[in-house]
């Protein structure tokens, strides 16, 4: 091995770097979905929101030259889609899952349509903070080039947990999610609370999308998301509706996704399809290990249509 190569050390490094690089969209979408589901509604449309966020963020960054403006616009586009979901679901006898699927198709379709002229141009990218300045190894330095959005996501998770647990707004949100009748009896407007929760969730998911197009992999095209939004929605169940657990789940998913390419690049080449499937095998295993036929999932808001 020559000096430039890390050999087997490359695998844990790649998993760590992958966890940091790949996890951010998962993190934002799952935090957003966590918030929405805590209010008693599922927004499956976040895949569409993610793609729409990626497109609108990239387009805005390209047109204005400012990537942070892209992040903002992506968030706003996301909350617009979230508001739409909440407003449709506020109508009588509307199923939130069906609306979510419709919005997923609408979001991706709209993003593909509007994003056509932005596939080719290169937009300015979000700057990364070089946390690896202390290392002499180029690989470590590159792995520790951390995007500020990742840090924002990390800070957001405990903040959300605290907010949901101790603030008045958080408690209202949880009452609405646990028992709509109790909330109604107390005089809270259920639809308004859910609208705000879904719009905020959409904002987060939109920001997550802008990370895809403005940081990593850092370009807009139609296969950019390849189902990450849906995976992140599933991560919320996996994380038991706990924002801090969402962080760990996202990191785990990001790291597991990096395992396949990393092993192949050091020469473990047999069975790479299996390594590529690692994140999904992992989810299945944990879901089976923690599920129970006797009681409903711990932490699940009681008003969710899937657990009711």
């Amino acid at each position: 091995m020559d000096h430039a190569s890390l050999g087997w050390w490359g695998v844990p490094l790649a998993v760590l770097a992958g966890a940091i690089r790949v996890s951010t969209p998962f993190l934002f979408v799952s935090l957003g979905e966590c918030l929405t589901e805590k209010s008693g509604r599922i927004n499956l449309g976040l895949e569409g929101t993610l793609v729409m966020g990626a497109m609108s963020g990239y387009a805005t960054a390209y047109l204005t030259g400012n990537p942070w403006a892209g992040v903002l616009v992506a968030g706003l586009a996301g909350s617009l889609l979230g508001t739409l979901h909440a407003m449709i679901c506020a109508l009588e006898r509307v199923n939130d899952i069906a609306v979510g699927i419709a919005l997923m198709l609408l979001g991706t379709g709209l993003a593909f349509f509007l994003g056509k002229p932005f596939i080719q141009p290169q937009a300015p990218q979000l700057p990364a903070i070089p946390f690896g300045w202390w290392s002499s190894s180029a690989q470590v330095r590159s792995a520790l080039d951390i995007n500020p959005l990742f840090l924002v996501g990390l800070a957001l998770a405990p903040l959300l947990l605290w907010g949901l647990r101790t603030t008045r707004w958080g408690m209202v949100l949880r009452i609405v999610g646990e028992s709509a009748e109790a909330a109604r009896a107390m005089g809270y407007q259920i639809n308004r609370v859910r609208l705000l929760a879904t719009a905020a969730g959409g904002f987060f998911a939109g920001v997550g999308g802008s990370f895809l197009s403005l940081s990593y992999p850092g370009s807009w095209n139609e296969r950019l998301s390849s189902g990450q939004g849906i995976t992140a929605v599933a991560l919320v169940i996996f994380a038991r509706w706990d924002p801090v657990l969402c962080v760990w789940a996202s990191l785990l998913f990001g790291g597991a996704g990096a395992l396949g390419p990393a092993l192949q690049s050091v020469g473990v080449t047999q069975g790479y399809h299996l390594f590529n499937a690692a994140p999904y095998v992992l989810t299945l295993a944990i879901m089976i290990a923690t599920s129970s036929s006797r009681h409903r999932l711990a932490g699940a808001p009681a008003e969710l249509s899937v657990t009711r």
């Binding site: 190569s5 790649a14 770097a17 690089r21 590159s142 690049s265 050091v266």
Partner: peptide, 8 residues
Amino acid sequence: NSLIDQGA
């Protein structure tokens, strides 16, 4: 990224 980390 993995390939570059491995010295490619």
